[in-house]
Simulated assay, not measured.
Amino acid sequence: MRLIAPMLATAGTLPDDTAERPWSFEMKYDGCRMLASVGGGREPVLWTRNMNVVTPSYPEIAEALTAAFGGRGHIVLDGELVALDQGKPSFGLLQRRMGVTMRRSRCSGESL
């Protein structure tokens, strides 16, 4: 399977209709950028923005994605993996979860 790079954020401009609110924001989820390939008769693959495959570290994510999308052709998802603590993102909680079964533990997949 050929891994693809994630879509990265770029600076933009505000829409023209911001006279009453001349600002904009996007929620910072404080997680790990992750891509996933699911379906198409293949095993799911999860990888980081630095193109490191981390599927073995998140078997429950791979299983859930297969259950949700596995029988519907092939799909590639690009998003943020977040651990929630009482409904709020917790990077500390995610850090404790990272690299449970892999030698690479950080979001970027760098060796510790």
Rank of each mutant, 00 (worst) to 15 (best):
T13W: 03
L14S: 00
P15H: 11
P15S: 02
P15T: 02
D16C: 01
D16F: 10
D16H: 07
D16V: 05
D16M: 01
D17Y: 06
A19L: 05
A19G: 03
A19D: 13
A19Q: 12
R21I: 03
P22S: 13
P22Q: 14
W23A: 10
W23N: 08
S24V: 06
F25E: 04
F25Q: 10
M27V: 13
M27W: 14
M27F: 07
K28F: 02
K28V: 04
Y29S: 03
D30H: 14
D30P: 07
D30N: 12
G31E: 01
G31K: 08
G31D: 01
G31H: 10
C32L: 05
C32D: 15
C32F: 14
C32I: 03
R33W: 05
M34L: 15
M34R: 03
L35I: 02
A36S: 11
V38Q: 02
G39N: 12
G39C: 13
G39W: 06
G40D: 14
G40Y: 11
G41F: 14
R42F: 02
E43H: 05
P44D: 06
P44L: 06
P44W: 10
V45F: 13
V45C: 12
V45M: 15
L46C: 08
L46M: 09
L46E: 12
L46S: 09
W47V: 00
T48D: 09
T48C: 09
R49W: 09
R49E: 06
M51I: 03
N52D: 00
N52L: 12
N52T: 12
N52G: 04
V53H: 03
V53S: 01
V54Q: 13
V54I: 14
V54F: 03
V54Y: 01
V54M: 15
V54S: 07
V54H: 09
T55W: 10
P56D: 11
P56Q: 01
Y58G: 02
Y58S: 06
Y58T: 02
P59D: 01
I61N: 08
I61Y: 04
A62E: 10
A62Y: 14
E63M: 05
E63D: 13
E63W: 01
A64H: 05
A64P: 05
A64K: 07
A64M: 09
L65H: 07
T66A: 06
T66H: 15
A67T: 11
A68S: 14
F69V: 04
F69G: 01
F69E: 01
G70K: 04
G70V: 00
G70D: 00
G71E: 08
R72L: 11
R72C: 02
R72M: 04
R72P: 00
R72T: 02
G73K: 13
G73M: 11
G73T: 07
H74T: 12
H74E: 15
I75R: 04
V76Q: 15
V76A: 13
V76L: 10
D78L: 04
G79W: 07
G79E: 01
L81Q: 02
L81N: 06
L81R: 07
V82I: 08
V82G: 08
V82C: 10
A83D: 02
A83Q: 01
A83H: 09
A83F: 13
L84A: 11
D85P: 00
Q86F: 04
Q86G: 11
G87D: 13
P89C: 01
S90A: 07
S90M: 09
S90W: 04
S90I: 08
F91L: 08
F91S: 11
